[in-house]
Write a protein that binds this DNA or RNA. Structure first.
Length: 219
DNA sequence: GACCAGGCACATC
DNA sequence: GATGTGCATGGT
């Protein structure tokens, strides 16, 4: 292993410890059921979580947050209910694509879908229109409880700032950095991604806040 | 009023 | 394969 690789490997492992000591457990995903995780994962695409919360509460309020109810509802009606998330027409169609696959191939049963092996489940999710690598991996980790590392915009920004990757790195390359340098541990992958998001939200949005970032402090 | 947020698909080169 | 664009609301 080259010196560069050793450095990266150490960084990936140490940063988790630092973030966990500083912020503590994040208790992700903020949802009451695996189905709610999936809905949230699609709705939060390129969108602030506060906007998603409004849409989820609206669906709950109307008692529509079940596979059966959402499968039956009209796409246009669904779009109106999730308006607060932005991209509501596209996201309504994406939710419908997921539900279509769930009902056509698995009888509307999430347990049945989750009985697939991790590689098959990931492949199945990626076949669904509107589910890309990050959304698929979020579903695998937080809904299906598989030890898969989720890469998002915060993850890439963090690694870029610390000069561990180049801008052209692909999703797969970044994911490999974590999976090859960490034990395959569900709980740790869960916390690590959540901690990166916490860090990003609190410290990476401005240069001034970035100076206060716990990773930039000594001792 | 500008900028950004827990992406993705599609067109074009 | 890389790059650009459309999708859209709500918070700062």
């Amino acid at each position: 292993m080259s010196a560069r690789n050793r450095y990266t490997c150490g960084w990936i492992r140490n940063i988790y410890q630092q973030l966990f000591s500083y912020f503590g457990p994040q208790h992700w995903w903020p949802a009451e059921s695996p189905f709610e995780v999936i809905i949230g994962a699609i709705l939060t695409q390129n969108t602030a979580w506060t906007n998603v919360e409004q849409a989820i509460s609206r669906l709950k309020q109307k008692q529509l947050l079940t596979p059966q109810k959402l499968y039956r509802i009209k796409t246009k009606t669904l779009a109106g209910l999730i308006r607060s998330c932005g991209y509501y027409n596209i996201k309504a169609a994406r939710l419908k694509s997921f539900l279509q696959a769930l009902f056509c191939d698995f009888g509307g049963c999430l347990k049945s879908l989750f009985s697939l092996s991790t590689p098959k489940l990931r492949e199945k999710l990626l076949q669904i229109n509107g589910i890309g690598p990050e959304t698929a991996d979020s579903i695998l980790l937080y809904a299906a409880e598989r030890p898969v590392f989720v890469v998002d915009a915060y993850t890439k920004r963090l690694l870029l700032r610390h000069r561990l990757i180049k801008n052209k790195y692909s999703y797969q390359q970044i994911q490999d950095l974590f999976t090859k340098n960490l034990p395959r541990n569900l709980k740790m992958f869960n916390e690590y991604h959540a901690l990166i998001v916490r860090l990003g939200k609190e410290y990476c949005r401005s240069q001034a806040r970035c100076q206060l970032c716990p990773l930039n402090r000594k001792g």
